[in-house]
Nucleic acid binder design. Structure first.
Length: 490
RNA sequence: CGGGGUAUAGCGUAGUCCGGUUAGCGCGCCUGCUUUGGGAGCAGGAGGUCGUAGGUUCGAAUCCUACUACCCCGACCA
């Protein structure tokens, strides 16, 4: 584990803020709890978006867009939903400013008070279901499989860069189905997409499972999630997929005539992942030298740095690099040739390490003579000199290997930090140390709450296909038939 | 909202307890020369409403009062 990933949170937090700023990922904005995502960071997000978007479309979904503002009354309609979000809503009350009476200031024009306040969406279930009502009459109108890429606002008490910002970017899917079974199947289809994305693109292994009833989404019947373990031993919920039952259909009166000519409520799902995934990416792989990006998401996959003394040397090098660049780009590899003469090679080496660029090439006079090139990989920091001939195949293989290696490394980290615990004392000790703690639980929200109060640990997930095993609740000693995953979480 | 802390140049900070020259230092920035295979060296230079407002004083970054912002811990949470 990188030394700055100590379990002491204050160190971690300092390192994290330092890193994301240096790596040009994001910085805090002047606006409370919001963030500016700089171009390099946004390029990572764009790659995530592209991969997810394709997966959604390949499974039959379409994109659409719904309003940012939600009339306050919409929130009243689903009781547990409003309870879950009421405390973190930004509210628009006026629509006009005016110059103050003394002419010195701009103030809110009290005459421009809205009849009904508008909520800036913290999530779009309400406005979308209000719309779906108008779209759905018959079973022929179903299913509706829609995704939206949007920003949402949740006025959190305390924010944290990427993990819990007041405004964040995300995708939210909202689907409508004829039957319960079909909706549950959709929920699980999306869960699989999320898990696949996390593991195959981000290189972050995740547990797929169910949230406990007290941790589920406000308004859901069941919340499924993917749960990842960060290098500091804390858990991060990386994505959620909700089976909403008929809750929103009933709240917004969305009915359809079935094949049997019966009027029925629609079955629903919703699901989302956010820019929090960028936080997961940073925290899962980075080391003391900075970011380590999986090749599939890295905006720059290969950085090439010339080493030269004189102008004519640079020209020779540039010529050679151009050829290499064409070969690599023909394979769909993104290449950055950094021939700035304003920074020295050592500077550039550090910079691309900070930025997590998977592969770095350096080409100098010695290489020109020998027809070789220096190749360095970010994940292991290994360097070697290899012949230029056939470099494109070597790099293609190396990128695939780095992608795989990051996942393998993260997976073995998770294995080494997952513990089965059978006594309350061991439980408390292990939770304090960090990691996933597998323990028996009597299944009641009361016990869950008490455990949370005493240890700050929450049930992260009840894994799908969880092996059944007789045991006794870690806290109450009551019988239990399976272990669940406890951890301290972000 | 409760508890604790901080505010001095783009960033990081010294000075504040115990008031007293022109507010000091590092990084970064600009200019010039030498450098370039792991964050260069030397020389010169620019950059400050000391968070805001008021008060005490011959004199305030320093003492007093109020306010504001930010950070950490809790409640909340993708």
């Amino acid at each position: 584990m990188a030394k700055n990933f100590s379990t002491r949170e204050e160190n971690y937090s300092q390192w994290y803020n330092e890193l994301v700023v240096k790596a040009d990922l994001a910085e805090n904005s002047a606006v409370r709890g919001c963030m500016v995502i700089k171009p390099y960071g946004y390029a990572i997000w764009e790659r995530m978006q592209a991969a997810l978007d394709k997966m959604f479309k390949d499974s039959g979904h379409e994109n659409a867009y719904f309003p940012l503002f939600i009339p306050k009354s919409f929130f009243n309609k689903e009781a547990s939903h409003v309870k879950g979000f009421a405390k973190e809503c930004a509210v628009v009350t006026h629509y006009r400013l005016k110059t103050s009476d003394d002419g010195k200031d701009i103030v809110v024009d009290e005459d421009a008070k809205l009849e009904e306040e508008l909520i800036i969406r913290p999530t779009s279930e309400t406005i979308i279901w209000d719309t779906y009502r108008k779209w759905i009459q018959s079973y022929r109108d179903l299913p509706i499989l829609i995704n939206q890429w949007a920003n949402v606002v949740r006025w959190e008490m305390r924010t944290r860069l990427f993990l819990r910002t007041a405004e964040f970017l995300w995708q939210e899917g909202h689907t409508a189905h004829e039957t319960s079974q079909e909706a549950v199947k959709e929920t699980l289809t999306i869960l699989d997409i999320y898990a696949k994305f996390a593991e195959e693109w981000m290189g972050v292994p995740v547990l797929k499972g169910l949230k406990s009833q007290s941790e589920k989404f406000a308004g859901a019947i069941d919340t499924y999630c993917i749960e990842a373990l960060m290098q500091d031993g804390k858990a991060l919920q990386a994505g959620t997929s909700h089976f909403l039952g008929q809750n929103f259909a009933k709240a917004f009166d969305v009915k359809f005539l079935s094949k049997e000519n019966k009027l029925e409520y629609v079955w629903a799902t919703s699901w989302g992942v956010s820019t929090r995934l960028m936080g997961a990416l940073v925290m899962a792989h980075s080391d003391d030298k900075g970011l380590v990006l999986p090749p599939k998401l890295a905006p720059i996959q290969v950085a090439i740095i010339p080493i030269y003394k004189k102008e004519d040397q640079l020209e020779q090098i540039s010529e050679k690099v151009k050829k290499i660049k064409i070969l690599l780009e023909a394979k769909g590899i993104s290449v950055k040739y950094d021939d700035r003469d304003t920074y020295k090679p050592g500077w550039k080496f550090s910079e691309y390490e900070f930025k997590g660029v998977p592969v770095r090439l350096a080409l100098g006079p010695r290489d020109l003579e020998n027809n070789t090139i220096e190749i360095a990989r970010r994940d292991t920091l290994e360097k070697q000199i290899i012949p230029i001939e056939g470099i494109e195949d070597v790099i293609e293989k190396l990128l695939a290997e780095i992608q795989k290696n990051l996942y393998t490394k993260a997976l073995s980290f998770r294995k080494n930090n997952t513990f089965s615990v059978d006594s309350w004392d061991d439980f408390k000790i292990q939770i304090e140390k960090g990691g996933f703690v597998m323990a028996h639980w009597d299944g009641t929200p009361e016990t869950e709450l008490k455990i949370k109060e005493e240890t700050k640990a929450t049930i992260r997930t009840i894994p799908l296909n969880n092996p059944q095993e007789q045991g006794n609740c870690i806290f109450t000693g009551k019988p239990s038939k399976e272990r669940v995953v406890f951890a301290k979480a972000y």
